[in-house]
Design a protein around this nucleic acid. Structure first.
Lengths: 251, 251
DNA sequence: TTCTATTTGTCCGTATGTATC
DNA sequence: TGATACATACGGACAAATAGA
């Protein structure tokens, strides 16, 4: 035999075929959002399949976020676009931030202030909100060389944690989370490539114009209230951000 | 003994009871991480339940990330604690890559080559693997100003797509996905801040030493095989990477 | 309120296919 | 090749939730 291997045509399992058919019906508008899907019994009869097969198909659609199912009511279309096609799973926030655990934060300045209009792009509250601003650098435990300039903004209500923050090892958000019992429910991060100013270069023991990564992170509690904002500057050659996502639904 | 008959008092469904029992067995160490769980047949016999019930229980554990199931192999313990504390949900890979949809890729060079040992850090295969290397720049549709230098590496088996790639609008991985019917199951991205060399600056209509973001992306199919590697360079002031995660389990 | 029809949820039985060792 | 283990698919029965008469 020449060239390519003969390959048995792989047929999709029946319940996946049914799911695909229904999904296409949803996406095409044949089953409008908010409307009902055929009942299990109708699918069995129309497609000449068993109830198990129909249920497995509907389960796929439910897991993918297309439909909701309620006993006694039926199956209804929730959305004509998949809830999420790809998902990144993390064991902790540190995994997102690629956070070096064995570091210490040295505070070099503390200031209380009221947010001005120009601060709102970073701090996202209202003008006049009271904040604490901590400026400092982060060091690896066994090194005298700083690897980041870090500015931390905390709402004034966390003022009483200031003493504990000094020379705290690890992440500040974790300290706040524990000290005030406010679970972090969401975190965001913005990364941008920049070059170092003369002042920044001095602080990082580098040269002006060197590449650096600026990271702005925001932490929110379960009510969506901002718990912490951090502004960080890393030397480019010392900082790589890697992330990945997996496809979640095979529909 | 599991509560078999349903009484007036609300009892958990049987398959959930079985799942709970197995989960506790995992968390207690009775089923160690990496070890096997009882097979479906054993569960049926030991607990005097049907295969469906056993499968439903195991499905719950799989969806929760406790176990992996492989036909012909068995059910094995993946983790003794809930899968993921934080999750990032994306509708598409474009959302991860912050991909500008209205762009075109202009190819300025095509080369076929065999991977050398020095290429393996980027291409991750074996030395000697055959690749196609496309060099070019990406433009916004209505602009003559390039916004990225993009080098794309494709396994030689996708050679026949070369013609379609030329001047293709949008992402190359989507083209490959459709053209060869290889769904992208996973994608990874590495970001690092760098400064532009003289040559790069010329290509991007910028100045040498300007800040730039280097993005290396890899796309894998369902078998974990590498489908595409792309190497990109963006002007720092034109590129911000933002991401967020949500806590998934409220415990 | 009560009753009934409808719809999904749970549970069982059985058979065959497919991947792996 | 055979044995094992999960995947798919058929069948039936009853329970629980809901909506409407």
């Amino acid at each position: 035999m020449i060239g390519r291997k003969r390959r048995k045509a792989k047929v999709q399992p029946l319940y996946q075929q049914v799911a695909t058919q229904l999904r296409q019906g949803i996406e095409s508008g044949h089953y409008p959002v908010g409307g009902p899907l055929p009942t299990e019994a109708m699918l069995c009869a129309d497609l000449n399949i068993s109830r198990h097969t129909a249920r497995d198909a509907l389960r796929l659609l439910e897991e993918a976020g297309y439909v909701s199912r309620r006993r006694g009511v039926g199956t209804y279309v929730l959305s004509n676009r998949p809830k999420r096609a790809y998902v990144q799973s993390l064991g902790s926030l540190d995994d997102l931030l690629h956070y070096a655990h064995d570091t210490r934060y040295e505070i070099e300045g503390v200031r209380r202030f009221s947010a001005a209009a120009s601060d709102l792009a970073l701090l996202q509250g209202k003008a006049g909100d009271r904040w604490i601003k901590l400026t400092g650098r982060r060091y690896q435990l066994l090194s005298d060389r700083p690897f980041s300039i870090t500015v931390i903004y905390l709402p004034i209500r966390f003022e009483s944690a200031l003493d504990e923050i000094r020379d705290h090892r690890g992440a500040i958000y974790a300290l706040i989370e524990e000290r005030f019992n406010v679970p972090i429910a969401r975190a965001s991060q913005e990364l941008q490539a920049v070059t170092l100013s003369a002042e920044e270069a001095t602080l990082l023991d580098a040269k002006p114009g060197d590449a650096a990564m600026r990271a702005i992170r925001r932490y929110y509690d379960t009510d969506g209230k901002l718990v912490e904002v951090s502004w960080n500057l890393y030397l480019g050659r010392l900082f790589t951000h890697s992330s990945w996502v997996d496809r979640e639904n095979r529909l």
